[in-house]
């Protein structure tokens, strides 16, 4: 009853505060869209110059998305590349294909290599027609960088915005004195935390569904596994963010200090959530990553979205996330002791 009253009040406040509501629901979509544009922008068709390359190879390159310019001699082509008009030059060294890369942009190197490999593979079979069967472990070879990052970002945005908004609203409850006022009523401390969980939980559910739907259906991030599991993981991540945000707000005096937690708490999680390959990190640093909620959320989301992982593969991640939430919530109830002993 009291928990419901608290949750109901939070919902009412939310509905009146259109801007915050919009931030929570639309900002993740906006940033995801921007990310998509940025990453897709990087995958621009490689500009390849060819020197005395046979027609079928040029066609193969073009069909793989390259922007091909044929040249008569090597010098011309290399000069063009020197002016950064080309990303690579293909030529024949005797009968062996040779590639000279412009080489200043790692993404472009990758793009060129991908196109070249695909084309040569296609031509490699000396059968007629030149067809080489391509097979992929996951997906059909149309995965781009955004699929990989996107699967993690979907979870990250749930986490980030819920962390901030829940933290700030709990902080304001304290700085405006309403928390004290609440604790002068027979409301129990755990009921305060539960009320927040319920009230915000409804919005995080809404947010998680919206992000998951938008990312997979509108932006077209790969989704091999079940949409429902993506939703579940997003929700669990958001709950961890909610409890962590409200807990940490106890250690901030004002909104500005709440924002100071972003570089301390949020940014490190980005590094550890798999956007950067963890294997290259020292052992102890990897252990640090495993103490952060986003690590588990990202791990599960990548599994579901890119590899079609099912419940059997992600239940450990789920349980760890629930454990984080429970831990943070309990600590929160204890932190409220500062305001009322019982």
């Amino acid at each position: 009853m009291r928990i419901r009253a608290l949750a109901f009040r939070i919902i009412r406040q939310f509905i009146k505060d259109k801007r915050t509501l919009a931030l929570m629901l639309l900002a993740p979509l906006l940033v995801l869209t921007l990310m998509k544009l940025v990453f897709d922008g990087q995958a621009v068709d490689p500009r390849i110059g060819t020197v005395q390359i046979p027609g079928p190879v040029i066609e193969a390159l073009q069909s793989n998305g390259a922007d091909v310019t044929p040249f008569d001699n090597e010098e011309q082509a290399l000069a063009q590349m020197g002016d950064a008009e080309l990303d690579a030059v293909f030529m024949l060294n005797d009968t062996l294909p040779q590639i000279v890369l412009e080489g200043s942009n790692p993404t472009k190197i990758r793009n060129v290599m991908a196109v070249a490999q695909k084309s040569l593979q296609k031509l490699g079979g000396n059968g007629d027609p030149p067809q080489l069967e391509l097979s992929y472990l996951h997906g059909s070879g149309d995965r781009d960088i955004f699929d990989y990052y996107g699967s993690v970002l979907v979870g990250f945005f749930s986490f980030f915005f819920v962390f901030l908004i829940a933290g700030v609203s709990f902080l304001r409850e304290r700085t405006t004195g309403t928390l004290q006022r609440l604790l002068a009523t027979p409301l129990r401390r755990w009921e305060v935390v539960a009320g927040y969980l319920l009230g915000f939980g409804l919005f995080t559910l809404l947010q998680a569904s919206l992000i998951a739907w938008y990312a997979t259906s509108v932006l077209g991030i790969a989704l091999e596994g079940s949409f429902f599991l993506v939703l579940l993981m997003n929700l669990l991540l958001a709950l961890a963010a909610l409890t962590l945000g409200t807990l940490l707000s106890a250690y901030a005096q004002n909104e500005f200090q709440m924002f100071q937690f972003i570089p301390l708490i949020i940014v490190p999680q980005i590094f550890f959530c798999g956007l950067i390959d963890l294997q290259s990190m020292p052992e102890w640093l990897q252990t640090v990553g495993k103490a952060l909620p986003l690590y588990y959320g990202a791990d599960a989301l990548r599994g579901i979205m890119l590899r079609g992982a099912g419940w059997n593969d992600i239940w450990v991640d789920s349980i760890v996330l629930v454990g984080f939430s429970v831990l943070f919530a309990i600590l929160n109830v204890l932190a409220l002791r500062k305001h009322r002993r019982i």
Binding site: A5, L6, R9, D17, T176, G177, R181, A184, T185
Partner: peptide
Amino acid sequence: IGYMAQSDALYGELTAQENLEFFSTLY
């Protein structure tokens, strides 16, 4: 007990009626 703090502890976004409703349901 009914407590009135020195500084008003009210929810500014909500109407007076909603504030009253909220605190009363807690009781």
